Computed example of a mutant assay.
Amino acid sequence: MHIKDTDTLLFIGDSITDAGRDRTDPASLGNGYVQRIAGTLGERAGGGQAPAVINRGISGQRVYDLEPRWATDVIDHRPDVVTVKIGINDTWRRYDQELLSPVDEFESCLGGLLTRVVRETSARLVVITPFLLPVTPDQEKWSEDLTPRTEAVLRTARAHDALLVRADLVLPRAAEGKAATELARDGVHPTALGHRLIADAWFAEVDSAS
């Protein structure tokens, strides 16, 4: 995928995208993978114009929380590339709040959001899969919910011709040679290294796409 210096790249999702951004400042990118992507794009620009990067991640959100803000936070920006990272809270809330997010409903909602991007903009789509690096015994059982949810994300992304960033593969592979907490201290929220791996995986997919 060729990213032009005049492009607008929009990222939306949960806390992994949010990464502590200042929501009172529309230009704030947080301290995670979005900031790293923007920094690399700036370096590639060599002091010239770099693509605009917008972060609209909000901590704690599930896929249903994206729907009411999709027009203002995505469509109205007329982005050229939209990256979506969502799903782990849909699983997490089942275990800490008994708040269910049935996979079929999750898939339908995500599909509707991606369809709107295709129909209402000319943006190219990138989808980052949810991931988990279990660090507690309780998290070991989350796979019963997260595995089929990740499969739903894959199906939906492919149905909309989105590029896929397989965080669910990249981070577990990286954890094979080190403690999971080095990549995500609580199993969910990436460390600086975890965010760098996600950013690197994003570029690997985007740069290699025609």
Rank of each mutant, 00 (worst) to 15 (best):
G87R: 01
G112W: 11
R166M: 00
R116S: 02
S143M: 10
L164N: 02
I88S: 10
V103M: 13
R94T: 15
L99M: 08
A157L: 06
V170Y: 01
L133E: 00
V117S: 04
V118I: 12
S101T: 15
A174F: 08
D138F: 10
L171P: 01
T83R: 07
K141N: 12
F131Y: 08
D80C: 02
G112H: 13
S101P: 05
H77Q: 13
A167T: 11
A162N: 04
Q139D: 08
V81E: 04
Q97C: 12
R93A: 04
V170L: 05
E151W: 02
T150D: 02
E107F: 06
V103A: 13
V103N: 10
A152H: 05
R155F: 05
L146T: 02
G112K: 11
A167I: 08
L113C: 12
D76H: 14
L154D: 05
T147I: 11
I128P: 00
D168I: 13
V82F: 06
P130S: 14
T115H: 08
P172M: 11
T136W: 11
D96Q: 11
I88Y: 10
H77T: 08
Y95I: 09
Q97F: 13
L99V: 07
L154S: 06
R149A: 07
V165S: 08
G112E: 11
D145Q: 07
T83D: 12
R173A: 09
Y95C: 07
R93E: 03
S122K: 15
V117G: 04
P148D: 06
L169T: 14
E144N: 12
D80I: 02
R173M: 09
E140R: 14
G112L: 12
V117H: 02
D138P: 04
R93F: 05
L171T: 02
